[in-house]
Every structure is written in C-alpha cells, then in structure tokens.
C-alpha cells in the first residue's frame, strides 16, 4: 500500500473519528460523505463525531495463517466490535489469551502499532481493543 493511504486515515484510526448524519442522526464509522439512509438529503450535513470505541465483541476468530505483515503476531484475535454508540468496526483484541475471548465480551480501545509496510518501511498505528 502506498504511504498516503496511511496518513489519510489517521484521524479515524488514531482518534476514532466517524460521522453523524445531520438529517437523520445516524452515526457511521469509518466516516461517510453520504448517509446510506438519507442519500441527497445528507449532502453537506455529515459532521464529524468522535466515538468512545468501547463496546462488545459480536464475533471473532483466532488467526493462525497471517499475511507477511502479521506473521510475527500469530496466533492473534480478530473481532467485530459493536461500539456503545451502535456502529461496528473490525480490529484486533489484545491483552487477552486466545482461549479467553468470547462473543459478548466487553472491550475498550487501545492505541497500538497495527503493522508495517514491507516495501516502504512505514510503521502505522491505530486502534486495537482490550478486555474492559
């Protein structure tokens, strides 16, 4: 991946910035320019909001076969988290033994190194989740 792809997403990956539709009030993470419910009525009305990132595990998996950038971390836990604000995101679960992770487990966000790009050598950071 090219370097600009990392820095463009920094506000969301560092500070959990998403959007709220000024028309219907529905929230989105990551940010959206158009509300999928309101379409053109949401044009220009999507405003940035910061999410807590706290929530619970909807589903998860323990990854054993990983891409190059994650080879050193196996086995690691990947999960879909539902934030208390209602939106969902995908991320890693850390500070948790692989046998302890469960659907419904409460988690809170943690700021960590996510990976690095082999070609450019760029290290990139963002959110992971740990048991609350």
């Amino acid at each position: 991946m090219a370097i600009p792809r990392f820095w463009r997403e920094i506000p969301s990956r560092y500070n959990l910035i998403g959007t709220e539709c000024g028309n219907c009030g529905k929230r989105y993470f990551p940010p959206r320019i158009i509300c999928p419910q309101c379409h053109r009525k949401s044009f220009g009305k999507m405003k940035n909001v910061r999410f807590t990132g706290s929530g619970e595990i909807v589903t998860y998996s323990v990854i054993h076969n990983a891409p190059k950038a994650f080879e050193m971390q196996v086995p690691y836990i990947i999960a879909i988290i539902e934030f208390e604000e209602g939106v969902r995101a995908t991320g890693q679960i850390i500070d948790c033994e692989v046998e302890d992770v469960k659907i419904g487990m409460k988690v809170s966000p943690a700021f960590r190194k996510i990976g690095e790009d082999g070609k450019s050598g760029v290290i990139y950071y963002g959110y992971k989740f740990k048991p609350a």
Binding site: M1, P30, S61, A66, I78, I114, Y124
Partner: peptide, 25 residues
C-alpha cells in the same frame, strides 16, 4: 475492505471464520 478490515489483520479466511463463529453461536 482493505482500509477497514484487511489492514487490521483480518484475513479473507478470518472474515469467513467470524461468520462461522457467529453462526455457531
């Protein structure tokens, strides 16, 4: 979605595994 799934270490098998886990649940 490269930017919001794969980048965090969610492999293609991992995404399907999460569907399986939830289906079992």
């Amino acid at each position: 979605d490269q930017e919001w799934e794969s980048v965090f270490g969610a492999t293609f098998a991992g995404l399907h595994a999460m569907i399986a886990k939830r289906h079992m649940h």
